[in-house]
Amino acid sequence: MSVDLSKAGMVLATSDLSAGYDGRAIVSEIAVEASPGQVISIVGPNGSGKSTLLKSLVGVVKVLGGHVKLGDADITNMAPEEIAKLGVGYVPQIDDVFPPLSVKENLEIGGYLLARREIPARVDAVLEVFPRLKNMMTRKAGKLSGGERKMLAMGRVLMLSPSVLVLDEPTANLAPIVATQLLEEYVRGFAEHGSTVLLVEQRAKAALRISDWTYVLGGGRVVLAGAPKDLEQNPVFVESFLGGGTRPAPTK
């Protein structure tokens, strides 16, 4: 990745966070921190609350207790569009593009908060990062392959040069080779260019390979945290997530 699209990263942190739906907490007492230049990954079994945690950070799910901070600003329960304005880019696991809109229109919506005259240059910059999208600018996003679609989803958030990237299982449903490229080339690349990257990932091994720090969620709580090399030495983690045995039962 040769083009720097990100602003200087900011620290995204939670303290004693609980969040969920209809007043019922799915995640509780969560304290995570992601710093600039780092990839922070969150792994855990299905139903452990990983996606709910990310959604609560970007204003999609209600925070029921505790705080979310972006730098010095408290962004707890702020509207998603305000959080986007502050420089947090979010790529959801599914429904990550606007299917009836063309690739170009998806990128333009990604740059909705920019001045009109800034958009063409920004689109060009995003296309330098994802050159494959260049030849499909008029194609509807709903007609893209899984990998192309995910590149578009990331391109869309890069339009605003986010300080923090929040990525929910960006490799879901992708072929292993595409998933590896996406994580190692792009996701790691964003952090190396100064962004803060918070990543939820099912492929624990792949996530560890690109992460600086990893949180393990179970039953809606952080049950383990550490540097990847330390987690790889942890027998419980290895047994649960790196193919050493049975995974913990879903808790949702």
Partner: peptide
């Protein structure tokens, strides 16, 4: 197409 994603896009 996707009101939630539209909000996350600003």
């Amino acid at each position: 197409a996707n009101p939630s994603l539209a909000r996350n896009s600003g």
